[in-house]
Simulated scan of single mutants.
Amino acid sequence: MCAVKSKIDIRSLTLEQLQAQLSAMGQQAFRAKQIYSWLWQKSSVDFEEMSNLSKPLRDTLKQEFAINAVRVQREQHSGDRTIKSSFALHDNHIIEGVLIPAPDRMTACVSSQVGCSLTCKFCATGYMDRKRNLNADEIYDQVVLIGKQAQEHYRQPLTNIVYMGMGEPLLNYSNVMKSVERITAPDGLNMASKRITVSTAGIAKMIKKLGDDQVRFNLALSLHAANDSKRNEIMPINEQNSLRALAEALKYYYAKTKNPVTYEYIVFNGVNDGLTDAQELAAFCKHLPCKVNIIEYNPIAFADFENAAADKIDRFADFLRQRGITTNVRRSRGKDIDAACGQLAIKETATPTT
């Protein structure tokens, strides 16, 4: 019995690679730009929609190529208007993404991996295994699908994208970078780079690589403690990426890009919420231009951390502000549907496509 020929994932190809593939098939190379426009500008996931291509060519494309589209398996709507989606991938893995509406913006929070290899003690995703990295088109699809939700439910376009969902983006560097390129490219979604924020738990050598690549999107570091012993306890990645190493990498990154950095800091009750902790954070902030986002802790079943009281969070923020550090307190969104920061975890399996 002859083996079934596997189809090429067409969105894994660059424009030049697609041109070469079409030429080898006896097709005119200029068709590649038309196909690329359908895939990345119009976000088409069906060759039959490509109406400026002949029917024989569309049939040939279906025979030779696959579009491994992401689909929404389940939507959950929060009382605060947040929408969490479970997305099914072509191989039946599940990831999650979130639409976060606010008066001045519509933000898509997207995942970069199926699960996570890091083991941050306060994060539900950190208690999952990492199954695989997402491809660039799977990250792109989340943006498109969440953008459709923003239009359908709130009649507004997406304004911002944050890579703060499942996974560590800098451990899927090439696919994250390609997804950003397709999202920002004029022949892609044409979003401004400054509307995109990539969040990392802190991989020093990859932060330096961001600097070498002179990225134009925003960088956020999930800090949560400016003390190595405390950070080691809640974020084991710190054992290989100490605060000193991170400070050095961030200074290198800033020297190359001139982009300020955002530090994300969850204030845990009795863990990192004291005056000494605030002083250590203020000292860390002196390394380069930055701002601090203080984030409420969102309880998960696997951990026994508690959120600090609101007045304590406010005092912590005021301490930083008094030292000239731009500080915002971010109230959590989507808690009632486990869509808030640190709560994304898979509790279901994919249903087959019919």
Rank of each mutant, 00 (worst) to 15 (best):
V271A: 04
A192H: 06
P103Y: 00
I139C: 04
K208Q: 14
L158D: 06
R244C: 06
E75L: 15
M177Y: 12
L221A: 08
V143S: 04
D318A: 14
R323W: 00
G167P: 03
H153E: 13
A88V: 12
K312S: 03
D311I: 02
A249H: 02
R331A: 04
Q149P: 14
N190M: 03
R330K: 08
V267F: 02
Q142T: 12
F302W: 11
N232P: 07
Q17Y: 03
S111R: 12
M25K: 12
G270K: 12
K335Q: 11
A226D: 03
K178E: 09
D228M: 07
Q151P: 03
I35F: 01
V267I: 15
I139P: 07
S44D: 11
D91G: 14
V45E: 10
F47P: 04
Q17C: 10
L22D: 11
Q41I: 08
V72Q: 05
K5Q: 14
Q214T: 13
A225I: 09
A102T: 08
V143Y: 07
N68R: 13
I95M: 09
L246K: 01
G115F: 04
G147P: 05
V110L: 12
L89W: 02
A301F: 13
N272R: 05
Q21C: 11
V70P: 02
T197G: 04
Q73M: 04
F284A: 11
S193M: 06
F87P: 06
Q17I: 05
Q214C: 10
D141W: 01
A310T: 07
I10V: 05
L275I: 15
Q113S: 10
K55G: 02
I196F: 03
G167N: 12
R195N: 07
E48G: 10
N190I: 04
